[in-house]
Every structure is written in structure tokens, then in C-alpha cells.
């Protein structure tokens, strides 16, 4: 197992880092919270071209998504990327922005028939919808224009990535997808989501450590109090472990390794739990300052919880893992 980055991978990471630092500043999050349209230029001018990563090695995509999560980037990129990855086995490709309509009310990406799909990210900003139907054994997919669907926004904690219920009057006839290829694509989507959670957790941890060094009370930096140090250390332990688990899962999926089923559930569960926990620690460390809207902390806190929920929360993935472990 080699976790070191190649020169190209280091490029992906640092390019992504400066891209988000430059194009997705704190002010954009505030603006997009008040009005989703504020996020449009980020997609129109920068992120659309990165959807190509849907075809790249998952380890590379994980690096990009870490930076995306760090920035708590708003807008349709996440949904478009997920649509492109899931559609990859079929050759279907959206011309512009897109989203994925696969989940039922339970949020799980298990294909099923019927006229409604739930937990559909950023549908209001997507040009097309990848409509998934059928079953796990015989999935089908079709791309439909968003204009042909009825969208209902369902408010949730993370307003920077709105969720929708999507209904079609007459579901389209989809192309059959090889179930193994579908399962592989869903694994990619899970690891992508987990990688974003790690990036969000990373921002929360780093920002908290910085704040603990700067903020003084009782004549010393609050970071010098052992009570606070231990909280931050615990957060770092959680996050580092989860981060490595996500990279490991990405390598497993890329290599089509037999451990990949377990590794993917480990990654999504660990990333969700870590991001949620680190978010709570960050709030506690920032105290009054972190509880104000103007501080960017709550955007990540919201993303951490919403990201854990997306494609099934950590509890679900642990249950699945339990089944895998005990079924031989």
C-alpha cells in the first residue's frame, strides 16, 4: 500500500486548492445561502470542466473532492459529477449540468420503479436529470431534461446544496445497465461523498487549531489548556483515521480489489462520523465566535451532517458492513 502522492496527484490537489481558495471565498457561501443563484458563476466559469474527473482514477477524484469539501463549495458541481460517474457505464453524458435521481425516501441508491425520486441534489440548478429505475439486478438509466420534471425543494440543514423531490409524469424508457458496473459506479459515488466529508472535517480541524493558537483567555492561548488540546487531539485521531480509510477505499475501487465492498462502507461510515464529531468539536472550540452566522463554521457543520445523510448515514453503512462481516 502506497499512500504517497505522485507529482500529477500533487498537481491535482494543489490546483484544486488554489481554485477553491480563489473562486469560492467565504463571501460566496454567505451569498449563496441567501440566493442559490450566487453559486452559478463558480460552475459556469470554473467547475464544469472538472466533471471530467468522473472518468479519472478515484484516488485523483478523492484529492479534488477533499478541496471541494474544505471550501464547502455551493452549487451544482457535486450533483453533476455524481451524475457523470453513475452514467459512465452507459455512455450517457449530459451536455451541461446534471443531477442524479435514484434514491427513494430512505435515501439509498437502490434502483426502483415509480414516478418519484428523493434526496436529489441541486436539481433546481441542473439542466438534465439522470433517472435511474429498475432494480439492483437490472438497473436502467435515462437522461431527461429537468424542464420535463416536477421539482419540489425539500429544505435541509445544508442550504448550499439544496435537495429536491423529483417527479416525472411518465418515467422514460431507460437503457439497461450491467449490474456489476452499476455497483462499481455506486461505490465511486460513495467514496466521492466520503472524500468531500473528509475535506470538510479538515477545514474544521485546521481552523480550530489555528483559532486555539490565536485566541487568548486568562492571559494565554486557549490552545495551551490541556482540556482543549485533548479535544482537538481526539478530533484529529478520528479524522486522520477516516481520511486514510477513504483513500484506501479509493485504491480498492480503482484496483477492483475484493476488499472493496467492505472498504467502501468503512469509508462512508467513518467519514460521516468523523465529520460530524469534528464539527461539534470545532463549535465548542470557537464557542461564541463560532455560533455567529458570519463565521463560516456553520456552513461546514451543516455540510457534515447533510453529507453523512447522503446515500445513507453512517449507521446504515455500519449495518451493511455488519452483514458483510457475518455472512462469511
Amino acid at each position: 500500500m502506497d499512500f504517497s502522492l505522485s507529482a500529477e496527484q500533487e498537481m491535482v490537489r494543489s490546483t484544486a486548492h488554489s481554485l477553491f481558495e480563489g473562486q469560492c471565498p467565504a463571501g460566496l457561501l454567505q451569498a449563496a445561502w441567501d440566493d442559490k443563484r450566487a453559486a452559478a458563476p463558480l460552475w459556469d466559469e470554473h467547475l464544469y470542466q472538472w466533471v471530467e474527473l468522473a472518468g479519472a482514477d478515484l484516488v485523483d477524484l478523492v484529492l479534488f473532492m477533499g478541496e471541494h469539501g474544505r471550501a464547502a463549495a455551493p452549487g451544482v458541481f457535486f450533483a453533476s459529477l455524481q451524475a457523470a460517474q453513475l452514467a459512465a457505464p452507459t455512455g450517457l453524458a449530459a451536455a451541461g449540468s446534471a443531477t442524479v435521481a435514484v434514491a427513494g425516501e430512505n435515501g439509498l441508491w437502490i434502483p426502483h420503479d415509480g414516478n418519484a425520486r428523493h434526496h436529489v441534489p441541486s436539481a433546481g440548478d441542473a439542466d438534465e436529470i439522470l433517472w435511474v429505475a429498475g432494480s439492483l439486478a437490472a438497473p436502467t438509466m435515462a437522461l431527461v431534461p429537468t424542464a420535463s420534471a416536477t421539482l419540489t425543494e425539500v429544505d435541509q440543514l445544508d442550504r448550499l446544496r439544496p435537495m429536491y423531490t423529483v417527479e416525472l409524469a411518465g418515467p422514460p424508457r431507460g437503457i439497461p445497465v450491467d449490474p456489476t458496473a452499476f455497483a462499481h459506479a455506486v461505490d465511486r459515488a460513495l467514496v466521492t461523498t466520503a472524500a468531500e466529508l473528509i475535506g470538510t472535517g479538515r477545514w474544521l480541524l485546521e481552523t480550530s487549531v489555528e483559532y486555539a493558537c490565536e485566541r487568548e483567555q486568562f492571559g494565554q492561548p486557549i490552545g495551551s489548556f490541556q482540556g482543549l488540546q485533548w479535544m482537538l487531539v481526539d478530533a484529529a485521531l478520528l479524522l486522520e483515521r477516516a481520511d486514510a480509510a477513504v483513500t484506501y477505499a479509493a485504491m480498492c475501487v480503482d484496483a477492483d480489489d475484493t476488499d472493496r465492498h467492505r472498504a467502501v462502507h468503512v469509508a462512508k461510515a467513518e467519514a460521516g462520523l468523523a465529520a460530524r464529531s469534528v464539527a461539534r468539536t470545532a463549535m465548542q472550540v470557537h464557542a461564541g465566535t463560532g455560533y455567529t452566522f458570519e463565521h463560516g463554521l456553520h456552513f461546514r457543520l451543516r455540510r457534515a451532517y447533510a453529507g453523512d445523510a447522503f446515500m445513507g448515514p453512517s449507521g446504515y453503512h455500519l449495518d451493511r458492513l455488519g452483514q458483510l462481516l457475518f455472512s462469511g
Binding site: V154, Y305, G312
Partner: peptide
């Protein structure tokens, strides 16, 4: 929140337990 599964982050009064009370 955990009891609400994938809807744990849903705040929409009409779509969440007890009108989004827990969120």
C-alpha cells in the same frame, strides 16, 4: 437525528419528524 436515517438533515416542516423539531 440518527433515528431519521437519510432524512436526518431534512428541516422541511412537512417532510421531517415533528416538523423539523429535532433539526
Amino acid at each position: 437525528l440518527d433515528l431519521q436515517g437519510a432524512s436526518l438533515a431534512v428541516t422541511d416542516p412537512g417532510r421531517s419528524e415533528e416538523g423539523g423539531r429535532w433539526q
